[in-house]
């Protein structure tokens, strides 16, 4: 006998364990590898401290400088919008907070559902805009790889199925919820092996750059 409830329980049970195990093992393997490889020792005398420069760069590279904004306003604005929307939905939707509590053993307060709903809708629109932009912009289109489209599709499906499940636009509901969990699990599984790893490496990389420049006494 197969049904939507069995599907949901499968995604909530065995598949979730597998996905999270692959995610945790993959991500830790990547991070530990990165940290342990390190860089060749620098024997030159440091001209300034690493930490303030590293932290400053984490911030300055997060906020686009005016030049970048003028060159690619779409990338900056839409990129910010959908990242913030995605994080709002991911981290502050009540069921997600409960999930985090269940998996990590601690969590934080959630936002009211209408706020999350709005953020999700905006995220969906922004994601569609990014795809259209990627397909129509000649340079972007030229440099896009299959991985870029795969990552976009998976992220979009996670948000879309979540939106459909919340508004109960797919019947029966266990199927809608199961689809959403399944998409999220696919995201978790591919995360350590695609550019999605940037979720965890972005700020590390920014710090690293800033620290390296700071040591040399160069502004980054």
């Amino acid at each position: 006998m197969s049904g939507s409830m069995e599907f949901l329980l499968w995604t909530k049970g065995p598949l979730f364990n597998i996905a999270l195990a692959i995610f945790a093992i993959g991500l830790m393997a990547r991070l530990v590898e990165i940290f342990m490889l390190g860089r060749a020792p620098n024997y030159a005398e440091p001209r300034a401290h690493e930490w303030p420069a590293g932290l400053r760069t984490m911030l300055t590279r997060t906020v686009a400088d005016p030049g970048t904004f003028q060159r690619a306003p779409f990338n900056v604005v839409v990129g910010w919008v959908w990242h913030l929307g995605f994080l709002t939905a991911l981290l502050f939707f009540v069921p997600h907070v409960e999930l985090i509590q269940g998996v990590l053993g601690f969590a934080w307060p959630a936002l009211p559902n209408p706020v999350v709903d709005f953020a999700t809708a905006i995220t969906l629109l922004a994601l569609i805009a990014t795809l259209v932009h990627r397909l129509t912009h000649p340079v972007k289109r030229h440099i896009s790889t299959i991985e870029d489209y795969l990552v976009w599709a998976v992220v979009f499906m996670v948000v879309l199925t979540g939106y459909l499940a919340y508004h109960r636009l797919v019947e029966p509901y266990p199927l809608a919820l199961g689809m959403h969990i399944l998409c999220a699990e696919i995201l978790l599984i591919i995360l350590p092996f695609t550019k999605l790893t940037h979720i965890f490496t972005t700020f590390i990389a920014r710090w690293y750059n800033g620290a390296a420049f700071g040591r040399k006494g160069v502004q980054s």
């Binding site: 329980l9 909530k12 049970g13 979730f16 364990n17 999270l20 069921p95 997600h96 409960e98 999930l99 509590q101 269940g102 998996v103 919820l177």
Partner: peptide, 8 residues
Amino acid sequence: PVSVPLTL
């Protein structure tokens, strides 16, 4: 809650 995984 419904969203909590079963065994993990």
